[in-house]
Design a protein around this nucleic acid. Structure first.
Length: 699
DNA sequence: ATAGGGTTAG
């Protein structure tokens, strides 16, 4: 009868109706006081998620043994109700049942997932007191508990206490070092493990450490080992491999693993591939994959939507993004914080009315977290009126929300855009007070802020104070700072230091050094860097690099060389490159070439005022009044308006804004006299570079 | 009859 009952329970799982009818059936056959049968029923209720009902049944059971208590504890720890589990644990002792290895391992599992190190230590002492240390299950659970609490040394000690550690003990220990991202120790332990001991649980967490292009070769070695051990069909291993290959920048390898799985793929596999495409800017592939998921009725979840929403950026994805938003609402995921955060970031990137939509999403979100606040802050500082961003930052501070590294970094970038030193310094003080000063992103934003505000000395100080000397963003910021100051040689020497000290270079590094060369007239050096980018430094030049190089040549008066460079580009130049070229033509008085490129630009971007204004100025300079008039006419016909460029200066905590030919200030006469004096003085220094720099700033 | 480890996200 008992095996029959067991199989009946098995087939009744997850249906309350079936379970209770089986339960009744058992009672009818006189099994009510059979503790074995009762425990099986109890376990089935718990496995099916009917925890409350299980507890009621447990209370009414005529006989309870240790297994009954353990089953109940198990139910509470796996649903995260640690306090209830501990109540049962103490109740168990009071009613005379002794806790055994099962009780302790279940309890420790709950402690581990709640990361309650304090409770864990107490349980540990009870384990020792009860003499359960030699139980490998309890031992592994202890290792895992310390590992999850990031106490790797305690985990190691607990591991040493296990007399015959098995793969679970090893994996739990390695998992601890993975969690604290101690790559070296994690792989050292991996090397100490017997081959036969390694299983899927060993590889999955280790693979998550290999998330950098520099580690791609190691990833391939680990992959080879996975194949050697015949683990290539293990879903967790493959999922981790898809993510790691994507993080290492190799989509093709990620895709190969993904394709290799065929029908074995699960939701995490799809999500990992999707996130990979999205991260590596393969937007079309991401959209295709997502649509395939919908078409083939693969279930979608929160991860799916956060990934695909973050793929939608800017105008070209607005329509699709809005349909996605509808889909999110339909699935009832709009109030899930991570999804809503992705929606906020997406809407901020849309060109029209986006800030308003993003703000109303933010306000409607019940469970706002730091990411939500920072997404709005970043959006406002990039797109919104800067004053609103500053206001939002004070709002954040007054709301008792923690200001973290993301927030500091965003608001400092804002200060550098505004070139407002006083606000920047105040925020620097706040960052110092909350110890974010040495965070690489905060420090980089400080560097940019001080450089932009003209205090390169303080920028340098921030650079020196940074914790990690291997922070690419910090080096990039410092190189750019010196570039803006016209200290191109300093930028270049920082660049070679970066190479010597094995700091990772990225595409921003090259934008920064090329800018440095351009601002200091280092033509040969700049061109050489551009040429070496791909073959030596393994970084593919992007549009901004070509634009910087065109600028470099244009400033040096080498328009023809700039033209050659554009013609030799592997991709067709984008408007940014062409606008830079147009500027170069204008500066060199190459009217014919300028007209050609301008016509091309007018086709690409008929609504952008830049091209019209450049042409118009150039025709004025050349006194070609008819041409100038025709440009103005076309502008009028197309409804394009000149957007004046503003400058501003901070005087005694007050911002004074002005634009070219502005005569509205009460002290206007004196101001222009002073400007004239300064211009004369600069000419007197006979520095053509600085005079032309002044021109550029003015336009 | 009840137990321990592992994959996706600013």
């Amino acid at each position: 009868m008992k095996p029959f009952l067991a199989s009946l329970l098995e087939s009744s799982l997850h249906s309350f109706q079936k379970l209770s009818s089986t339960h009744c059936h058992a009672i009818k056959h006189g099994y009510n006081s059979d503790v074995y049968v009762s425990n099986r029923v109890l376990d089935s209720y718990i496995k099916s998620g009917f925890l409350c009902h299980a507890h009621k049944m447990f209370d009414e059971m005529p006989h309870r043994d240790t297994v009954s208590w353990n089953t109940m504890i198990s139910g509470y720890t796996s649903s995260g109700k640690l306090d209830k589990a501990f109540c049962l644990f103490t109740g168990m002792k009071r009613s005379g049942s002794d806790a055994d290895g099962y009780s302790f391992s279940r309890l420790l599992k709950g402690v581990a997932s709640a990361k309650r190190f304090d409770l864990g230590e107490q349980v540990h002492s009870l384990v020792v007191k009860g003499g359960h240390e030699c139980n490998v299950y309890v031992g592994s659970a202890l290792v895992d508990m310390y590992a999850k609490c990031a106490r790797v040394e305690d985990a190691f000690e607990a591991f040493r206490e296990v007399s015959e550690p098995n793969s679970v003990s090893w994996n739990a220990l390695i998992g601890g070092f993975v969690q604290v991202r101690d790559v070296e120790t994690a792989f050292w332990l991996f090397g100490c493990m017997e081959m036969e001991m390694m299983d899927d649980g060993t590889f999955a967490p280790l693979l998550t450490l290999l998330d950098d292009p520099m580690l791609c070769n190691l990833l391939k070695e680990v992959h080879a080992k996975v194949l050697k051990l015949g683990l290539e069909k293990e879903i967790t291993v493959c999922n981790a491999m898809v993510s790691s290959y994507a993080d290492c920048g190799s989509v093709s390898d990620a895709e190969r693993v993904f394709d290799g799985l065929g029908g074995l793929r699960d939701l995490i596999t799809w999500n990992s591939m999707l996130a990979g495409f999205s991260k590596l800017e393969q937007k079309d592939s991401a959209f295709e994959l997502f649509i395939e998921m919908l078409r083939t009725r693969i279930e979608t979840d929160v991860y799916t939507y956060t990934s695909i929403l973050s793929t939608c950026s800017g105008e070209e994805h607005q329509v699709f993004g809005q349909s996605l938003h509808c889909l999110v609402i339909k699935k009832g995921l709009e109030q899930v914080t991570s999804v809503s955060n992705a929606l906020i970031s997406m809407h901020i990137q849309f060109p029209t009315c986006a800030m308003k939509d993003a703000l109303s999403l933010f306000e409607a979100l019940e469970g706002k977290d730091l990411v939500s606040w920072n997404s709005v802050l970043r959006g406002l500082s990039q797109k919104g009126p800067s004053e609103d961003a500053v206001k939002f930052f004070s709002y954040l501070r007054s709301s008792n929300i923690e200001v973290d590294d993301y927030a500091f970094s965003a608001v400092l970038r804002l200060c550098s855009d505004l070139a407002t030193l006083q606000l920047g310094q105040q925020i620097h003080a706040l960052a110092t007070k909350s110890s974010f000063e040495s965070n690489e992103f905060v420090a980089s934003s400080l560097i940019l802020m001080y450089s932009k505000c003209g205090v390169i000395k303080n920028a340098r100080k921030c650079f020196e104070q940074i914790c990690s000397t291997h922070s690419t963003v910090a080096w990039n910021a410092m190189i750019l700072g010196y570039a803006q100051h016209g200290s191109g040689q300093v930028s270049l020497s920082l660049f070679s230091q970066m190479c010597n000290q094995n700091v990772k270079l990225d595409h921003v590094t090259f934008t920064a050094v090329l800018t440095a060369c351009s601002h200091s007239g280092l033509v040969q050096e700049g061109l050489e860097l551009l040429q070496l980018m791909e073959p030596v430094y393994k970084i593919q030049p992007r549009m901004e690099h070509y634009a910087a190089a065109v600028d470099l040549l244009g400033r040096a008066g080498l328009v023809n060389k700039a033209k050659e460079l554009i013609e030799s580009m592997p991709l067709s130049p984008d408007p940014m490159v062409l606008k830079t070229f147009l500027g170069a033509c204008r500066a060199c008085g190459e009217i014919e070439m300028a007209t050609q490129v301008a016509n091309h630009l007018l086709e690409m971007e008929p609504d952008d005022h830049f091209t019209y204004v450049s042409l118009s100025h150039m025709y004025s300079d050349a006194k070609k009044w008819e041409e100038k008039a025709s440009v103005k006419k076309v502008m009028k016909e197309r409804g394009v308006r000149k957007v004046p460029g503003w400058s501003w200066i901070e005087i005694r905590n007050e911002v004074c804004a002005f634009n070219a030919e502005d005569r509205s200030h009460p002290l206007c006469e004196e101001i222009y006299l002073m400007a004239e004096d300064l211009t004369q003085e600069m000419k007197w220094f006979d520095s053509d570079d600085q005079a032309s720099l002044l021109d550029v700033n003015h336009s």
